[in-house]
Nucleic acid binder design. Structure first.
Lengths: 148, 148
DNA sequence: GCTTGACTTCGAGTCGACTCGAACTCATAG
DNA sequence: CTATGAGTTCGAGTCGACTCGAAGTCAAGC
């Protein structure tokens, strides 16, 4: 049922749409990252749908935010298993959300340190006193004991 | 001559202070990440100062924010070479700052996608309609064509 | 009929940043 | 005087996520 106009896509087209190489797409299939078995045509070639492309876009976000392949596999496996395990899926997502938030916080902290040094250099270069940097310690710019 | 009370630290103490293993500290020396040659005592053992510990703390921030070792080596080399190259150092820092900001932005975007899914699951689980998720597409929660 | 190019499978190689283990030396405490 | 434990050097191994290459298949265009 549903719309009969199910556009089918070759691996090359999916590659173009997602930015993942064909090598990577095959690798992902092999790693069990798809939420449904990848179909083949008469000639044994992979046939994808736009839904699979959407899922791959989500995957890409999960990956780029540091979710390991085994965890994505687990999530995909739950979806594949069908309704009834939504709480588990929810849990994976919430955990990952917290994880990403932590990453952002850590990066922000590093950014603060880096930004302070950038500012210091900018000021000293402007004043013409930059050559006095690092005369005694890390660029004369001790970390104010960041709360860690 | 500065303060004569220059505390000297063993590699084990530095490890405890920085959280880097002794293996890693030796590795870092070998990779040329120090801003001054690491000194040795009569017995040939490494002797560190608190300044080196401060630098290592900066290093740790650079690393955790994704600066590759070769780039840190380059920066350390400039400091080691002494005054006169502050503009180059400044450049490295500014570039890295921009890079980290980009990472934060990318993570925030992924976070948005993930958060939307978390919210969706929370709502559906609450409503008791979670079993209708993923009936047609990636969890019935199409990405609203995020500006990429 | 032949070439082209996208596809197939498989296994091996790469990369960065550690991480580990083995075999050794050395200074101090009991 | 020996045992302990921290240090030394060196080279090899690990890990995750690709990435690549080889050898072969297949459908369409000339």
């Amino acid at each position: 049922m549903s719309t009969a106009a199910e556009t089918t896509l070759s691996i090359g087209q999916v590659s173009a749409l997602t930015g993942l190489t064909t090598h990577t797409l095959r690798f992902y299939e092999q790693e069990g990252l798809f939420v449904a078995p990848v179909r083949r045509n008469a000639a044994g070639r992979r046939v994808f749908t736009t839904e699979e492309v959407e899922w791959l876009k989500v995957c890409t976000k999960l990956r780029s935010s540091g979710m390991p392949l085994p965890e994505i596999r687990r999530y995909a496996g739950l979806v594949l298993a069908g309704p009834g395990n939504e709480v588990e899926r929810f849990d994976i997502l919430r955990r990952h959300e917290a994880n990403v938030q932590q990453q952002v916080d850590d990066l922000q902290e590093a950014l603060t340190v880096i930004h302070r040094k950038v500012e210091l250099y900018a000021r000293r270069l402007d004043e013409g006193t930059a050559d006095q940097l690092w005369t005694n310690g890390p660029e004369c710019d001790p970390l104010p004991d960041a709360a860690e």
